Computed example of a mutant assay.
Amino acid sequence: MDETSLIYWVFSILIPIFISISTFWMKINKDKRENENRLTLIESKIGSHDEDLKEIKEDLKSQNEDLKLLHKLNTQSDMMLKMMDEIKQDLKKEY
């Protein structure tokens, strides 16, 4: 191989291959970095959603307790109204 054919081979074959491989390598690294950033954002959002779900569950538990208490109060109120009605009827019978 003479000097001109070697130079031709380096410029026409070797340098384009090197440029192609380095470009491909940089693109892969860039995509990998972007995916890592995306995963980090998703993980932080998941953590935030988990905390929100815990708060919502606690709120639901307290609301369920309040509803149970309200039902008990309603039942007691109905019983008191019935007792009052009975007392009124008893008083009417006596007079």
Rank of each mutant, 00 (worst) to 15 (best):
M1P: 08
M1Y: 01
D2H: 14
I7L: 04
I7S: 04
I7K: 15
I7G: 02
Y8F: 10
W9F: 13
V10F: 02
V10D: 09
F11G: 00
S12Y: 05
I13V: 11
I13L: 05
I13D: 09
L14S: 13
L14D: 00
I15K: 08
P16D: 07
F18D: 07
S20W: 14
I21H: 11
S22Q: 13
W25H: 07
M26C: 01
I28C: 11
I28K: 01
K30A: 12
K30V: 01
K30C: 04
R33L: 06
E34C: 01
N37Q: 15
N37F: 03
N37E: 15
R38H: 06
R38I: 08
L39P: 13
L39Y: 00
T40N: 00
T40Q: 07
T40D: 12
L41Q: 13
I42G: 10
E43W: 14
S44D: 04
K45N: 06
I46P: 00
H49I: 08
H49F: 04
D50R: 05
D50Q: 02
D50L: 12
D52Q: 03
L53S: 05
L53Q: 06
K54A: 03
K54S: 00
K54Y: 00
E55M: 01
E55D: 10
K57N: 08
L60P: 09
L60F: 00
L60Q: 06
K61D: 01
Q63H: 02
Q63A: 12
D66M: 07
D66H: 09
L67S: 03
L67C: 08
L69Y: 08
H71Y: 06
K72I: 06
K72A: 15
L73G: 07
L73C: 06
Q76K: 09
S77E: 11
D78F: 01
D78Y: 07
L81Q: 14
K82G: 09
K82F: 03
M83D: 04
E86S: 04
E86W: 10
K88C: 05
Q89G: 08
L91C: 12
L91Y: 09
E94Y: 05
